[in-house]
């Protein structure tokens, strides 16, 4: 029997990030998981609602939590809701956490919910990001077993952005500073993963709307670093990150006189390709920066293992990374 999860797509996945939605839905059956969309969910408020008014912002999110807890989605004591969008993931888990920590807030939110015939008991829904489900519930081994066309030859910069690992309102599933789960996942698919030092940096968020100058610089930094590592593509797991890096790449090039051409893809799209699903079902072609050239690099043979640069005779030993680390191609 497949594992069932409540599914909260969020506004972006309806349209702007339709490629993310399509590819997530396409790979789910391969991974033996089933998404049950929350009934008549509403917007999470992104980073905007809370800037205007507290209690309505919390009540807005809590309506979704209330629906999820009522819908009895995944069985057991706690309903699990998967949110593919990092901002939605953050808002849902934050409201649950702060309602648990501040009883007065919880009481007020519930009074508001009661006006719509709803209620929410803090702690009754566990909100999870799609990546967490994929790497921790399904697991790398199970994924490896499903790979039919390894993505050999594709150099990937794994990009996590901020909110899925920070601050971890319901407990972080990966390191907030130097996460590795997407790196390992991409390695499992056969891609060459670069050790992307800015992998958890900010994409600029809503600054594109408030001060484009500030946003373009943040986007430029990410593109510059990916280009230095000769990445064929940046892989994301958040609609906002995808939009900023993809939609504003041309603006960055214009502003800084650069010539970056780095397609920005969702991790689910690459999973679908590796699983041998038809590209048409995975939302390819929606990206502004065309991914065709990058995808053409995918070869049938694994690339030769890069020779480890031999340290000089005088070189001092390098401390080992903590257990679970992945050795990157350098």
């Amino acid at each position: 029997m497949s594992a069932k999860y409540g599914y909260y797509p969020g506004c972006s996945l309806e349209r702007n990030a339709i490629a993310y939605h399509q590819s997530a839905v396409a790979v789910a059956p391969v991974l033996d998981i089933e998404f049950v969309e929350l009934d008549d969910w509403n917007c999470c408020g992104a980073t905007e609602y809370i800037a205007i008014d507290v209690l309505p912002a919390y009540a807005l999110v809590a309506r979704n939590l209330a629906i999820a807890s009522r819908q009895k989605l995944s069985g057991g004591n706690q309903n699990q809701v998967v949110a593919p969008c990092s901002a939605c993931f953050l808002n849902l888990s934050k409201v649950d956490k702060y309602m648990s920590d501040a009883p007065r807030l919880a009481a007020n939110v519930n009074t508001a919910l009661a006006a719509g015939g709803l209620s929410y008991k803090p702690g009754s829904v566990r909100v999870r990001h799609l990546l967490d489900i994929v790497v921790n519930d399904v697991g790398y081994d199970a994924i490896a077993a499903k790979v039919q066309k390894p993505l050999y030859g594709l150099r990937i910069a794994p990009y996590y952005g901020c909110l899925i690992v920070r601050p971890g309102f319901q407990g972080a599933f990966d390191d907030p500073e130097y996460p590795m789960s997407l790196d390992r996942l991409m390695g499992t698919l056969g891609t060459t993963v670069v050790d992307f030092p800015v992998k958890a940096h900010c994409c600029g968020g809503h600054m594109t709307q408030i001060s484009e100058q500030v946003a373009l610089e943040l986007i430029r930094q990410l593109l510059q670093n990916a280009a230095e590592y000769e990445a064929d593509a940046i892989v994301t797991l958040c609609p906002m990150c995808q939009l900023n890096l993809d939609g504003y790449q041309e603006a960055v090039n214009r502003h800084y006189g650069t010539k970056y051409h780095i397609p920005i893809l969702y991790f689910t799209q690459l999973m679908g390709l590796a699983f041998g699903l038809p590209a048409a079902t995975l939302g390819f072609g929606k990206e502004f920066v065309d991914a065709a050239a990058a995808l053409n690099k995918i070869g049938v043979q694994p690339p030769p293992k890069p020779k480890k640069e031999r340290a000089g005779k005088e070189a001092l030993p390098m401390p080992e990374m903590a257990a679970g680390g992945l050795s990157h191609e350098s």
């Binding site: 500073e177 050790d195 390098m318 990374m321």
Partner: peptide, 13 residues
């Protein structure tokens, strides 16, 4: 010091 990844110990030579 590996517990503070942002300082790069064991990653940055």
């Amino acid at each position: 010091c590996r517990r503070i990844p942002q300082y790069g110990y064991a990653r940055l030579a």
